[in-house]
């Protein structure tokens, strides 16, 4: 992983974001910035508000306070049309892949193209196969989501998210529910996407191995603190995160992977 050049402009800027539902605050005063082309991980234990943060970033929920800027433009106070234009520049891979179950994989990938471009039906079909080829799913184009394995579904979801050549990609728990091999394949695809398209990628995850192999930069959300408790490059955080909860999280992998388990007496 290369060092991120400080000259590169910020693609996502989050300032003082608080989110939650009516009476309950789930996250407060979260601020971070993601540079163009960076792979940024938001990590934390289950229930710390990672997914809520993501839903606020992609506009499915309105933040209680703070602002979210994409490419210098504040989405919070943007009108409907600007917001729609902003959404066109983003792709999201949901935790459950969220493929539309009444449509085949190819139709799933084609729908955003039909909605947002003026391409002909044949061009769209060709483009769909290009996108499916990128994730290695061209052979499954005419199958329905229910006939696919978990890993294939996620890859189809990625192909759909890549449809409109997004500048920012969001991943919600990409390795959740996948076997280790499929999870590593997906990690590889994330890296490949950045290499080939220069996409800025924000991943919400708690998979330590993904974090170590893919992330350029990591922030960790605390479940009790309700805000960012550690920030930095993954290897620095594993060495010393400066927060006991964060250290517990980052060191938990070392016990199982790093050293052999001690035999109990």
């Amino acid at each position: 992983m290369s060092e991120v050049d400080p000259q590169i402009p910020f693609m996502i800027e989050v300032r003082g974001l608080s989110c939650g539902y009516r009476d309950t605050v789930i996250l407060r005063d979260v601020s971070f910035s993601v540079r163009r082309g960076e792979i940024y991980f938001v990590v934390g234990r289950s229930g710390c508000g990672k997914s809520t943060l993501l839903r606020n970033l992609i506009g499915l929920e309105t933040p209680l306070a703070g602002e979210v800027c994409f490419d210098g433009e504040n989405v919070g106070n943007a009108g409907h049309e600007t917001r729609r234009a902003m959404l066109r520049r983003m792709g999201v891979l949901y935790q459950s892949a969220a493929l539309w179950s009444t449509m085949t994989v190819a139709e799933n990938v084609a729908l955003p193209l039909e909605e947002h471009t003026t391409l002909s039906r044949r061009e769209i079909r060709e483009l769909v196969f290009v996108k499916l080829g990128m994730v290695g799913l061209a052979a499954a184009a005419d199958r329905y989501p229910a006939e696919l394995s978990g890993g294939m579904r996620k890859r189809a979801g990625l192909a759909r998210a890549l449809g409109l050549d997004p500048e920012i990609l969001f991943f919600d728990e990409p390795s959740a529910g996948l076997d280790p091999v499929s999870a590593r394949n997906l990690d590889h695809l994330i890296l490949q996407t950045r290499e080939s398209l220069g996409t800025t990628i924000l991943v919400v995850s708690h998979d330590l191995e993904s974090i170590c192999t893919v992330a350029d930069h990591v922030i960790m959300l605390g479940r009790d603190e309700k805000t960012v408790i550690a920030e930095g490059r993954p290897r620095d955080l594993i060495r010393d995160s400066g927060n006991p909860h964060a250290s517990e999280f980052f060191q938990s992998g070392l016990i199982t992977f790093g050293e052999p388990k001690k035999e109990s007496p």
């Binding site: 499915l60 959404l87 949901y94 935790q95 969220a98 493929l99 909605e115």
Partner: peptide, 17 residues
């Protein structure tokens, strides 16, 4: 309702549909 459970409706919204 099933589509909503499966995040399919969120996916529609984020894809601008």
């Amino acid at each position: 309702g099933n589509m909503k459970m499966n995040e399919e409706i969120d996916a529609l919204e984020t894809l601008g549909v």
